[in-house]
């Protein structure tokens, strides 16, 4: 039988969203996946303060580098287990500071048992480090957190996929994906919501492009940004950012995906005015 493997199903449909590490796809039982990514921000002289006004960094030019890794494992048809973490280095005019991010453990499940591509997630967010008093706005800062998310993509419809039946439809070559998550912490920081929508299109059997709009929003009154001065403090967890970007994904082989994603912020509060470039690889180990 001639093979017609929909490779995106095997590997690419579940490319991690580099920002949130969320996905719509529940993995097969016994299937494992590993993801590693590098986030680079462009140097910025200014940031949005907590009221949305533009302010200059007192330390000069500010930028960030972040490495993130994640693993997923198909525990059963219904549940996928996840773990992820990151480490971030901030740089301001040559002064650097490196901090581990939170460690996330979670489970993903299906909304509809007959389909894949629509999922819920429950994640435990464990702070990566304990920061000294007076440095609340930091990566990995805060109490224990719990994240609840829901993600929706294009599900397969196996009813339409019997090739001998009239009305056979090829799987869509372009599709929408959207979702959101709420993260609550025991103590600080304040609750955060994330929402995104993404339009994906397969340019070829091995290339996919996606356009994305995302909002990360802190609920409540935020802690004002701590003036940037030594010691440096990277990233602002109590931020509000609306960003947009593209994702280019390429299948290197049927189980290995390379993704490159440039993102620019459109509006922010407590956020650097930096563009971001994410480069990631995603390897699937089928059962």
């Amino acid at each position: 039988m001639l093979s017609r493997l929909p490779h995106w199903v095997i590997a690419g449909s579940c490319v991690f969203s580099l920002a949130a590490n969320a996905a719509t796809w529940v993995r097969d039982e016994g299937e494992a996946a590993f993801q590693a990514g590098l986030d680079l921000s462009t140097p910025a002289n200014k940031y949005w303060d907590y009221k949305g006004g533009t302010t200059s960094y007192t330390c000069g030019q500010y930028s960030e580098k972040s490495v993130n890794v994640g693993m997923e494992y198909g525990y059963s048809y219904d549940y996928t287990l996840m773990a992820s973490t990151s480490i971030t280095q901030a740089n301001c005019s040559g002064n650097t500071l490196t901090r581990p991010g939170a460690v996330n453990f979670g489970v993903r499940g299906r909304f509809d048992e007959r389909y894949n591509g629509e999922s819920w997630e429950l994640k435990l967010v464990i702070p990566g480090t304990v920061y000294p008093n007076g440095q609340p706005a930091a990566v990995g800062y805060g109490g224990l957190g719990l994240q609840v998310g829901a993600y929706f993509g294009t599900p397969y419809d196996p009813y339409n996929e019997d090739p001998y039946r009239p009305g056979f439809i090829n799987p869509a070559t372009d599709s929408w994906e959207y979702g959101g998550a709420l993260t609550m912490y025991m103590g600080t920081p304040l609750p955060q919501v994330m929402g995104y929508t993404k339009w994906k299109s397969d340019l070829s059997p091995s290339w996919r492009v996606a356009a994305k709009l995302q909002a990360d929003w802190t609920l409540g009154t935020r802690v004002p940004i701590v003036p940037i001065r030594p010691p440096l403090v990277p990233v602002l967890p109590e931020a509000r950012v609306i960003s947009t970007g593209l994702e280019f994904s390429h299948l290197l082989d049927e189980n290995l995906v390379l993704s490159i994603s440039p993102v620019i912020p459109l509006y922010g509060q407590n956020a650097p005015q930096s563009a971001n470039l994410s480069i990631g690889v995603h390897k699937v180990f089928p059962r």
Partner: peptide, 18 residues
């Protein structure tokens, strides 16, 4: 019975077992 139905109507490339 529910999993028996899923065998036929889950997405085609799922390799999960029941």
């Amino acid at each position: 019975p529910h999993q028996a139905e899923l065998l036929f109507y889950k997405q085609p490339h799922d390799n999960s077992s029941f």
